[in-house]
Amino acid sequence: MTTPTQTISPWPSTRKGDTAHPVRTLQWLLRQHGHPLLVDGDFGPITDAAVRAFQSSKGLYVDGIVGPKTWPVVVVTVRQGSTGDAVKGVQEEFQFRNLSSDPNKGLKIDGIFGPKTDGAVRGFQSALELVVDGIVGPITWRALVSGMLAG
């Protein structure tokens, strides 16, 4: 029998100089952990400093690279009723998958895990044959930030 984690892409490695997905999601997650930085999609010196401070505060190896050791610690489990920057990170992931190129379509990034976000999460989980519970925990986060089901 195959477990869901065997079919999920690995955690990506995100580092200083990156500007592509999933930098914005990482920035939302760092904000959730109290690092006041601009969510601009640029893994520059401020994001690098926030990553290093986060790694240090969690007893992780401090290298500024968000990979398979840091992602599982930086992600925050969210579900319907949750609010905040981690929810914005989930919503960012669905905007990344919005193939219309119109940010007014798809999920709004408002930090409120309501019925639309819940529906998007459940649809994503179903498409990947994960447990469909609407909870964005480590497995669903890994599938999202690794870019699965993205255009």
Rank of each mutant, 00 (worst) to 15 (best):
G111I: 11
P72H: 10
H33L: 01
F43R: 06
Q32T: 05
D102Y: 03
A49D: 08
T70W: 13
F113A: 10
S126F: 09
D42Y: 11
W71L: 09
F43N: 08
V39H: 01
S13C: 08
Q80A: 14
K88W: 06
F113Y: 15
T83Q: 12
V39F: 04
V73G: 09
V76G: 06
G106M: 01
L60W: 07
S101E: 15
R52L: 07
D85T: 09
F43K: 07
G64D: 08
A120N: 03
A50S: 14
E92L: 08
A20F: 03
Q27R: 07
I112A: 14
L128Y: 00
E92A: 12
G119K: 09
A20S: 09
G64C: 06
V73T: 14
V90C: 10
G111K: 11
V121H: 01
D18I: 07
P68A: 15
A86H: 10
S126N: 12
Y61L: 15
R122F: 05
S101T: 14
I109Y: 02
H35N: 05
G89M: 10
A127F: 02
H33A: 00
A127M: 08
V78H: 10
V73F: 04
F43Q: 08
D42I: 15
G64L: 06
T70M: 12
A53F: 02
D18C: 07
D18E: 07
A86R: 10
W28Q: 02
S100L: 11
R15C: 01
N98A: 11
G111N: 09
T83R: 13
R97Q: 11
R24H: 08
P12Y: 04
W11A: 04
P115S: 13
G34M: 00
G114L: 06
V121R: 00
K116G: 09
H21K: 08
K105M: 13
S13P: 04
N104V: 06
R97W: 07
S126C: 08
R79T: 13
L30V: 00
R31N: 14
G67H: 15
K69L: 14
D133I: 01
V132T: 06
P68E: 15
V76N: 07
L38H: 08
P115L: 13
V74K: 11
P22Y: 03
A53E: 11
V51G: 03
P72R: 09
G17R: 02
P138Y: 09
E129F: 00
V121G: 04
I65F: 14
V136F: 02
A50W: 05
I65G: 13
T83E: 09
K58H: 15
V62M: 05
R24K: 15
F54W: 01
S126D: 12
R79P: 07
Y61Q: 15
G67V: 12
F54P: 00
D102Q: 07
H33W: 05
S13T: 15
T77L: 09
V132S: 01
K58C: 12
G34L: 04
R79M: 12
L130C: 00
H21Y: 15
